[in-house]
Design a protein around this nucleic acid. Structure first.
Length: 561
RNA sequence: UGGGGAGUCGCCAAGCGGCAAGGCAGCAGGUUUUGGUCCUGCCAUUCGAGGGUUCGAAUCCUUCCUCCCCAGCCA
């Protein structure tokens, strides 16, 4: 991707890097993005990806992609593949630096033996419950395990037998020998290896013991020559352990761990566990459901990589817990889509408009620019005829104040076509308006007149006879609560916005018959849409990425207030 | 009431002793064949609170308050 040459607002991590560079502590910035392949990546990961890869790009350094795959019972190859696709789609490249913590298993094992030989680790047979009680509490120190003072030889023998599969799962673990009375809980002899007789997606059945995160991560960083190991705030408590392990081992270098606040977004759940539940319980159609905050979901929804990167740039990086307003994300998407989406016409909630003075069988082909603000984008031709579909919401029987769309006696412009004046409307027995009658002014072909007439309203439309039927999926936030993550003891099913997905049968202009999945357009006056993979030839399916801003809605709200 | 972090505009966020950047949202106008875009203007005498140091403090010291994280053989 292109090098970041524009000035970025500073943040505490850039300040640290600047200092390290000028002090000569760091020659070349080397970061890494270390996902665990136990789920799909979400916007929160996007923030981390942009931070790690972005920092490397900006400082002419490098960034590795490393899978933290030390817990085979939760990890799958499907996730490994999806994660790589998502990082690439976001616009980042790890070149030949694709790594897996599992590639270091043998090396890690040797380091564990090194710890044992030096009296810094021991095999402990306390079971889970005993471990917990020996650990003490937040305010009381723990007490030493009865197995803590075994000799290195004894421990080495036991650990080798663990590796050989002589013990059952849970029978024992390897623990770092640190300090059971440390006020830092994670320093109270943390487990660093446990027995798991589970098939690993990459190492198969080679191992029945697997290293824990704290042991694996710092060593992996050191082996790869990482200079700045950036992670989220909850690992701040682990930093003393990160440093302790590296200090006890003959590793090639000692990376600096730096913690930043993870991203929270209003109306959005960011916990992988809960996202998994949404998928498994069937509340959404899958990890790439367009309502999901996953990168895959957002991609399907129509978000662009540029907009996501811009968003990550604008939210900044700091250490204070924060929750970003969803409108900022929407702003970033609109900003990019506005500059890159061709405009086309689609009527989502149709009502018939009959041009009573237009010839019965006549069909005109009108030239319609794909983007009037930039004619270089070219145009297509759109059929116009006596019977059209227009948006139900563009007609008001009562002609409210400040309303300049269609209403009895009012003249509006049909974009690219003619000025029309509403003469009449037809209601059904239930009292609903079902058809609108209007007359057109033939002198306004193309949608313009030079007589200085003031026509404030411009409507989009589709010729009824030529209109193409399309399915349109309208999305709203998946959750009604602005902070779903903080809601306790309420099942997901009750938290979901019942209107998060509304499927509508729309009429779209015929030029859209052959669009390819992934194609993005703006439906004039309505919003930005992206063609879904579910589309069939001649029967497209559109996902609404984001609506256009609607200032009439605000005016109307004030009028009604 | 152990330890580790954080508190600057409704939401993010710069600032690191010299007198409160920027963005989003909001508000008021202008332009407009999208009530979109774009453009213009407004939007923290104040930085969690109280003391103190200083000619001068959001920035230093101090006391207090609030919030987040840690007691997985998860990451």
């Amino acid at each position: 991707m292109t090098e970041g040459t524009d000035k970025k607002t500073s943040n505490f991590i850039r300040n640290i890097v600047d200092q390290d560079l000028s002090a000569g502590k760091t020659q070349q910035v080397h970061t890494r993005f270390p996902p665990e392949p136990n789920g799909y990546l979400h916007v929160g990961h996007a923030k981390s990806i942009c931070l790690n890869f972005g920092l490397a790009n900006d400082y002419r350094g490098i960034c590795n992609l490393r899978f933290d795959d030390t817990n085979p019972s939760k990890e799958e190859q499907e996730y490994v593949d999806a994660i790589q696709a998502d990082v690439k789609w976001l616009g980042f490249d790890w070149d030949d630096r694709l790594f897996f913590a599992s590639d270091y298993f043998e090396q890690l094992y040797q380091y564990a033996e090194h710890l044992i030989v030096n009296g810094n680790a021991y095999v402990c047979h306390l079971d889970g419950e005993q471990m917990r009680s020996y650990r003490g509490t937040l305010t009381e120190p723990g007490k030493n395990s009865p197995y803590r003072d075994r000799t290195p030889d004894e421990n080495l023998d036991l650990f080798r037998r663990m590796r050989a599969g002589e013990f059952e799962e849970g029978a024992c673990v390897l623990r770092a020998k640190i300090d059971m009375s440390s006020p830092i809980i994670q320093m109270r002899d943390p487990a660093i290896y446990r027995i798991k007789k589970v098939h690993h997606h990459r190492t198969g059945d080679d191992w029945c013991i697997y290293p824990m995160y704290d042991f694996t991560h710092c060593i992996s960083d050191a082996l790869e020559g990482i200079t700045h190991s950036i992670c989220t705030l909850e690992f701040e408590n682990h930093r003393p352990l990160y440093d302790w392990i590296l200090d006890k081992l003959p590793v090639p270098c000692h990376p600096q761990q730096i913690e930043f606040a993870r991203l929270n977004l209003t109306h959005t759940l960011m916990s992988k566990r809960k996202l998994l539940a949404l998928v498994e319980e069937g509340h959404v159609a899958g990890w790439d459901d367009p309502r999901m905050p996953t990168i895959a979901g957002m991609r399907r929804r129509g978000y662009t990589p540029e907009s996501l990167r811009e968003f990550c740039e604008r939210i900044g990086v700091a250490k204070a817990d924060s929750t970003v307003d969803l409108p900022l994300l929407e702003f970033c998407v609109r900003e990019d889509l506005n500059a890159h989406s061709p405009r086309v016409m689609a009527v989502l909630d149709p009502i018939k408009l009959v041009i009573t003075n237009y010839p019965e069988d006549q069909v005109e082909e009108l030239d319609a620019a794909y983007f009037q603000d930039n004619k270089a984008w070219g145009s297509r031709s759109v059929p116009f005829s006596r019977e059209l579909w227009i948006e139900r919401d563009d007609f008001r029987e009562d002609n409210p104040k400040k309303w300049f769309r269609l209403a009895p006696g009012q003249e509006v412009r049909l974009k690219f076509a003619y000025y029309v004046t509403c003469q009449d409307f037809v209601k059904n027995e239930a009292g609903d308006v079902v058809e609108i009658h209007a007359t057109y002014d033939p002198a306004t072909r193309g949608g313009w007149s030079n007589d200085g007439r003031k026509v404030k309203g411009t409507l989009h439309w589709v010729s009824a006879a030529q209109a193409l039927a399309a399915e349109v999926r309208l999305y709203d936030t998946l959750f009604l609560d602005p902070n779903p993550g903080s809601v306790k003891d309420v099942p997901l099913s009750e938290m979901i916005n019942p209107d998060s997905l509304r499927v509508v049968q729309a009429w779209v202009e015929p030029s859209l018959a052959e669009v390819e999945a992934g194609h993005r357009v703006q439906f004039e006056r309505t919003g930005y849409f992206c063609v879904d993979p579910d589309s069939k030839r001649g029967r497209p399916v559109f996902n609404r990425t984001v609506t256009l801003k609607d200032s009439w809605a605000k005016i109307e709200a004030k009028l009604n207030a």
